[in-house]
Design a binder for these strands. Structure first.
Lengths: 125, 125
DNA sequence: CCGTATCCACGCAGATACTG
DNA sequence: CAGTATCTGCGTGGATACGG
């Protein structure tokens, strides 16, 4: 981030910075319920590549949103969980989620399969 | 956006999509108080280029967040204002803003000039 | 199982010049 | 004043192969 950009940021941008990476919100969402292993996340988000998953997790960790729990064993086992700080984001994110759900059809206009797939799952907010 | 990405989105992502463009949140913030002319926005956000400002405004307009008001006159006059739909985002954004402000020092660690510049202004949320 | 390294294509965004 | 066009560099993210 450039100095010039920093200078004019507002709170919203600070929050967006930590959560608006390409896959961060969905990673956050999956970790919001309970801690997960790396592979669980990969299975929950099939489209993400190993590289991107690692990258997003590292950034979330760097920003203090998640904890990385390493079990020293063979084969390796790593789990990720929200930090206390990360959990403080849930409330704000819930409002965002509710807004998004309420206005999903508007955002996507011609409600294609998005909504169907979306509604297949249980709860998102 | 790819189909695969769509398929797994959740409400949060829908909301993030419409507001997480590079300059969108700050543009939104400035329009939240009252409607503004193009040049006013440029002056309020000195770092933004004409090109990017236009781009962000077009996307916000396309997503139904803002209205573009064109006065047919010479020299040209164009104003932008939040739509009813756009205003519905304010509540959710306020929570984000509050979270961001509360945790600004954490996000930026070594609180440099960011906070000073930030606190110079009146109110952000 | 988990993560890194390398290569590469694409889109984003800056600078600049130009139009109505 | 408001917006477009072009050129260009750079970061982001995908594919793939490899390593601990």
């Amino acid at each position: 981030m450039t100095e010039s950009k920093k200078k004019y940021r507002i709170g919203v941008e600070a929050a967006l910075d930590v959560i608006s990476g390409k896959w961060k919100s969905i990673v956050f969402y999956h970790l919001a319920t309970e801690k997960k292993r790396t592979n669980e996340l990969k299975n929950l988000i099939p489209q993400i590549t190993q590289k991107m998953l690692t990258k997003q997790l590292r950034e979330l960790e760097r920003d203090g949103i998640i904890n990385r729990i390493i079990y020293k064993q063979i084969p390796p086992k790593v789990e990720y969980e929200l930090t206390e700080y990360g959990r403080s984001l849930k409330t704000a994110l819930n409002y965002f989620c509710e807004w998004g759900e309420t206005h999903l059809d508007k955002v996507y206009g011609d409600k294609n399969s998005v909504l169907d797939n979306f509604l297949d799952n249980e709860k998102h907010c």
